[in-house]
């Protein structure tokens, strides 16, 4: 078929474009849906607890991803600074994922447990109080604003629609779990930990009387990269 046929017939041209783009798209996208090894099999991954999820929503709302990535790439310099490279499994419950492509600040994929809650409070309120050379803006309003969590169950339910395996039990107890994780001893933390193993429980922002947005934010930061049990992870089964 000569070039002229495409150039002089708009219908044929459109069909030709559609076929070309479809092939390109399908070749790139379909394999990822069909290959079983895309997401590694690991122990320890679980969906976010309601408090962590609320923190994650604030993280997205404040645009933290514009300066912080959440993906340790498989390079020596990153492995030595941040730890084990990120696995696909670690962001399988992220909608949307926070891998990012900009590192004005450090990568946060494994920041969980690296600093104390006190440090995070001081750092979020005024980053330069603990890191004098930091250019991060302060977020003092997070400590002042109460966390609204009437809709905790709705957030879990919405994520279930897109494939996150929240159980009915988890959705029904979302608000109670959120309060238990933020208040420490006062709530039913045993039930919380049964539903969300390894959840860090406590008063995160140093203000036990209230559940603030800062509580949620720090709860989220403190769990990042801590779920996967790397003692049972077999790297030779996950070569990419």
């Amino acid at each position: 078929m000569s070039h002229e046929k495409f150039e002089t017939n708009v219908i044929i041209l459109i069909i030709g474009i559609l076929i070309t783009i479809s092939i390109g798209g399908l070749v790139q996208l379909v394999p990822l849906y069909t290959m079983e090894q895309t997401i590694e099999e690991v122990d320890g991954m679980r969906p976010y607890s309601p408090l962590e999820l609320a923190g994650r929503n604030i993280y997205v709302r404040e645009g933290c991803y514009t300066c912080h990535s959440q993906q340790v790439r498989p390079f020596r310099d990153e492995a030595e600074r941040y730890g084990h490279y990120s696995l696909a499994a670690e962001s399988m419950y992220d909608h949307p994922f926070q891998w990012g492509s900009k590192r004005t600040g450090p990568d946060l994929a494994r920041v969980g447990g690296k600093y104390s809650n006190d440090w995070h409070v001081a750092h979020m309120i005024d980053p330069r109080s603990v890191v004098p050379e930091s250019i991060m803006p302060g977020y003092p309003f997070l400590a002042e604003k109460d966390l609204g969590f009437d809709d905790a169950a709705d957030h879990l339910g919405t994520l279930r629609v897109v494939g996150v395996p929240y159980t009915d039990d988890q959705i029904a107890n979302a608000a109670a779990d959120l309060a238990a994780q933020a208040n420490g001893e006062e709530g039913d933390t045993d039930a919380l930990l049964a539903r969300y193993p390894k959840a860090v429980v406590g008063d995160f922002d140093g203000d036990p009387a209230r559940v603030t947005e800062l509580d949620a934010m720090i709860a989220y930061l403190q769990m990042l990269g801590t779920l996967v049990d790397f003692t049972t992870f077999k790297p030779e089964m996950a070569q990419r």
Binding site: P74, F75, R76, A79, Y85, P235, A238, Q239, R240
Partner: peptide, 8 residues
């Protein structure tokens, strides 16, 4: 080739 194997 595998970037993860290379890293290891």
């Amino acid at each position: 080739y595998s970037s993860r194997a290379e890293l290891a």
